[in-house]
């Protein structure tokens, strides 16, 4: 019944899908997994014939797996914190974008566009160098280690994207909803929180999950600014194993695999939700 309006940016274009005109290949989970695994094994096996004293690439990965995985868990932790922080601030920014006061809207627009169009890596540098390493509050010194600065750095683009998702979802709700809530004497705040936002939730969920996936994959950028997350550890492991060049492909392949295993299910779920919500709405 609703006019078909989608978020312009993060959802794939809404389409009337009767029958696809051409045969469509349905991806199953194992397809991607298999390709990723082949990459690792093949790149490992291709150079497995090192010296007898040297561990094979597979052996190296097995040996250092606990360390590498602990690095990966750190990546996930950073992504979750950045997502939480960015979502809270982004929600506020998104609500400001539909404010009735013109200056508030303008400020929200400018902040959103600025942080949305800046590269994540530049924003990360931005946070690294410009956030103080400690923060004094009422005589208490709160230290800001690098990883917290990284969380702040990642939350900036999250904030801007969440703001855009929220604004888009609110705008996609038909005007009639606002009008009828108004006619029933709901205040603007009541209308927003009880009528508009609950309807937005399902529209916001898929792009929001997609964004989370992007944040997770972006956390490796922290290695560039010296936070010891998985990618940093990977190059340290490589150095510890004598810096053999043939180890690089398997080691980075393993990092690819870890992220793939984590992000692929999120991607699948996002698509399922997207599809379901499109059909139902």
């Amino acid at each position: 019944m609703n006019p078909a309006k989608t978020l312009p940016v993060l959802l794939s274009p809404r389409v009337e899908r009767l029958h696809p005109p051409f045969p469509v290949f349905r991806l199953r989970a194992w397809h991607g997994l298999a390709v990723a695994a082949i990459v690792v094994v093949a790149s490992g096996a291709a150079v497995a014939q090192g010296g007898p004293t040297q561990l094979s690439p597979i052996g190296v990965i097995m040996k250092w797996m606990p360390l590498l995985l602990s690095g990966f868990v750190f990546n996930i932790a950073i992504s979750l914190m950045a997502m939480t922080l960015g979502t809270v601030v982004g929600l506020a920014l998104g609500l400001m974008a539909v404010s009735e006061t013109m200056p508030v809207r303008k400020v929200s627009w400018a902040v959103t566009q600025f942080f949305r169009n800046s590269p994540w890596l530049v924003l990360l540098f931005f946070a690294m160098f410009l956030v103080p390493y400690e923060f004094r509050l009422l005589g208490v010194t709160v230290p800001f280690p690098d990883w917290i600065k990284a969380v702040i750095g990642f939350s900036l683009p999250v904030m801007a994207n969440v703001s855009e998702i929220v604004r888009g979802a609110i705008r996609s709700i038909p005007d009639g909803q606002w009008e009828s809530a108004e006619a029933l004497a709901f205040s603007r705040r009541q209308t927003m929180w009880m009528i508009i936002l609950p309807q937005c939730l399902r529209r916001m969920l898929p792009p929001w999950m997609n964004l989370y996936s992007l944040v997770t994959m972006a956390t490796v950028l922290a290695s560039v600014v010296g936070v010891s997350e998985m990618l940093t550890l990977t190059s340290q492991v490589h150095a510890a194993e004598g810096g053999r060049p043939e180890l690089l492909a398997p080691l980075y392949g393993f990092a690819l695999l870890c992220f793939f295993v984590y992000c692929y299910p999120i991607d699948r779920l996002t698509r399922r939700l997207e599809h379901r919500f499109q059909v139902r709405l």
Partner: peptide, 8 residues
């Protein structure tokens, strides 16, 4: 597609 979409 799947591999490149889901890795950093």
């Amino acid at each position: 597609i799947t591999v490149f979409r889901n890795t950093p």
